[in-house]
Nucleic acid binder design. Structure first.
Length: 572
RNA sequence: CGGGGCGUAGCGCAGUCUGGUAGCGCACUUGUCUGGGGGACAAGGGGUCGCAGGUUCGAAUCCUGCCGUUCCGACCA
């Protein structure tokens, strides 16, 4: 490709509304342009990268026995009503009406459509398992699109769906898909980790997310420093403390604490360790519970894990925190002065709270706190559960090592759906005994466009993008100096260009009438992995100048073996 | 949805407080020079100052409403 014919749209300055580095560089390199919030056009440079990602995914999916299909982006409401998600999904599902007033939605995912197809076509267990995938644009009406294509409303996703006669078959395919994902993300050149993930409301047994490690990620991932254990913080188990509860040494006293509305203020004003304080969080109770509210206690320096809380039978899901008004009516004190003593509602305490002694908490009277609280002595020990987020330094739930926490970008998710959709939509086949059985399903997603952004997030420097070999939009850039003026430069460059093309290399020839500095800057911004400078001066000396994108130094190579040298570099 | 910021040339911004001829840098066009890291000089083109209404002799500037966008939070997976 010649630069003079290519849609180059590089920007010297960083657009002010781009926050993260990948978004900035994608705009600056001319990969994408914004059409509206969360909606982006892909320019030729960006699309080439998207296609490379898709290509790798297609190859590996095929190798894993999945077949490609294409499904409608606009989907009939009936299918979503059948699965129950027309009601469940909420405002993220963009609904629309056609000219006849019939209801549709823009597909945020395609379980309903594929399940409908499969149930109509498959009759027998002999036709299972079946694994199909699609790569296409999906739409989720995100409340807050951000970070460019990392969290956009319209995005390209690969989704695979598998169908099985039983759970064992599902587990086999799940493992195959997991392995395929490892191959895909390896080939994409990403620094990633498969992590144990939450199954959400669907339940079932298995789910892993694939996270690219990057500080701009929106998820917290907990890792063991001594094993392969990695889990989304949402789901990582916080183990009970190994140290036994200490004996009570302090008397229970109540003090006026008018200026201590928060744990931080309490710790500072009364000079106590934060580990000796307890946070009391009041949430709405489940409908089946006899009380309106439930109290959840975590240590002062710990954070409530809302997902864990929601799973408790006493707690309403999704989690709703009590309003100040509910607190006044039920307890008579505000949020800053709550505690477990004389609290008339179910109380559930975190494992680490259960081993505390001589601790402080609110007195359920405004501006008063108890100090020196001890379980058993001052009040009976309530129900104990794992309620908190794990923290840096906690023991790993796998039993080996301690946890560290890093940010991750979720680029893939493999999920055992079980029979949620097949039951709701009556997707049955006959088993060996001639009995109808709901098919077991799995789904396996990869955020294609998000993976592109994630790659840039991990691979960049002050000059721009550094593409890994398999994602680079072009394999090499030829940068002639005075291409338009010096005949020998033009002839030499054209000859080398033709030779590389004939060898099957995707070459970018910067034949623009620009000064060298402009070309160098653009080539680096766009992330060309290899660069060859062709100049009059060099030709006379019988050399070209080569530089890899991440090389410190340029090197002179002879014009003679240049083509082979470059091919070797490119294929290395 | 709650809170904050921003909306002036393609991009980045100043001007708004204190109303009075709409500016700067980059980019773009033409010419000359230059020619290995976003070059110099000269001459140009490009704006209903987000939209609507109001106050005023006069509004980018003050007031009201709306829209867009962005950040933080909540929400979602």
């Amino acid at each position: 490709m010649r630069a003079s014919k290519f849609f180059i749209a590089t920007l010297k300055e960083t657009p002010s509304d781009a926050e993260v580095i990948s978004h900035q560089l994608m705009l600056r390199a001319g990969m994408i342009r914004r059409a509206a919030s969360g909606l982006y056009s892909w320019l030729p440079l960006g699309l080439k990268v998207v296609r490379k990602v898709e290509h790798i995914i297609r190859e590996e999916m095929a190798r894993a026995g999945s077949q490609e299909v294409l499904m409608p982006a606009v989907q009939p409401a009936e299918l979503w009503q059948e699965s129950g998600r027309w009601v469940e999904y909420g405002p993220e599902l963009l609904r629309l009406n056609d000219r006849h007033g019939r209801e549709f939605c823009l597909g945020p995912t395609h379980e309903e459509v594929i399940t409908d197809i499969v149930k109509k076509e498959l009759r027998s267990y002999k036709q299972l398992p079946l694994n199909v995938f699609q790569i296409q644009t999906k739409f989720r009406d995100e409340i807050r699109p951000r970070f460019g294509v990392m969290r956009s409303r319209e995005f390209i996703m690969k989704d695979a769906y598998s169908f099985h006669i039983d759970e064992d078959s599902l587990k086999d395919t799940y493992q195959e898909m997991f392995d395929a994902y490892v191959r895909i993300f390896d080939r994409l050149g990403l620094d990633y980790r498969p992590v144990i993930a939450d199954n959400g409301s669907i339940g079932g047994s298995g789910s892993h997310e694939f996270h690219v490690l990057a500080s701009s990620g929106e998820d917290d991932i907990a890792f063991s420093n001594q094993s392969d254990y990695a889990a989304n913080i949402e789901t990582a188990e916080a183990l009970a403390p190994t140290t036994a509860k200490s004996e009570a040494t302090q008397a229970l006293i109540i003090k006026d604490t008018p200026n201590a509305k928060t744990i931080a203020a309490l710790v500072e004003q009364f000079d106590i360790a934060i580990e000796k304080t307890v946070k009391t969080l009041i949430v709405e109770a489940d409908e089946d519970c006899d009380f309106e509210l439930v109290a959840l206690l975590v240590r002062g320096d710990h954070e409530l894990n809302e997902l864990k809380a929601e799973k408790l039978p006493q707690v309403k899901a999704p989690l709703v925190f009590a309003t100040e008004e509910q607190l006044k009516n039920n307890i008579g004190a505000g949020a800053g002065s709550l505690g477990p003593i004389d609290l008339d509602m179910p109380i559930i305490i975190d494992r680490s709270v259960a081993t505390m002694s001589d601790f402080s908490a609110g007195a359920n009277v405004d501006d008063k706190h108890y100090f020196g609280i001890n379980w058993e002595r001052d009040l009976a020990i309530p129900e104990i559960a794992d309620l908190r987020n794990v923290q840096e330094g906690d023991l790993s739930p796998c039993g080996n090592g301690t946890l560290s926490i890093k940010r991750g970008i979720e680029v893939g998710h493999v999920f055992q759906l079980g029979t949620k959709y097949s039951e709701a939509m009556n997707a049955n086949v006959l088993d060996q005994n001639g009995k109808a059985k709901s098919m077991h399903m799995g789904c396996y997603g990869i955020g294609v466009t998000r993976a592109v952004a994630a790659s840039i997030e991990q691979n960049n420097d002050a000059n721009g993008i550094i593409w890994p070999k398999n994602l680079a939009p072009f394999e090499i850039a030829l940068v002639p100096i005075n291409y338009d003026k010096a005949d020998t430069v033009k002839q030499t460059t054209d000859a080398l260009y033709d030779e590389l093309i004939a060898a099957g290399i995707d070459v970018f020839l910067d034949d623009r009438k620009e000064r060298p500095g402009v070309k160098f800057a653009d080539m680096e911004l766009m992330g060309m992995p290899h660069r060859l400078v062709i100049s009059d001066r060099g030709i006379k000396a019988g050399t070209f100048e080569y530089k890899g994108r991440t090389d410190e130094e340029k090197q002179e190579i002879t014009t003679q073996g240049a083509c082979n040298f470059l091919i070797e570099k490119i294929r290395a």
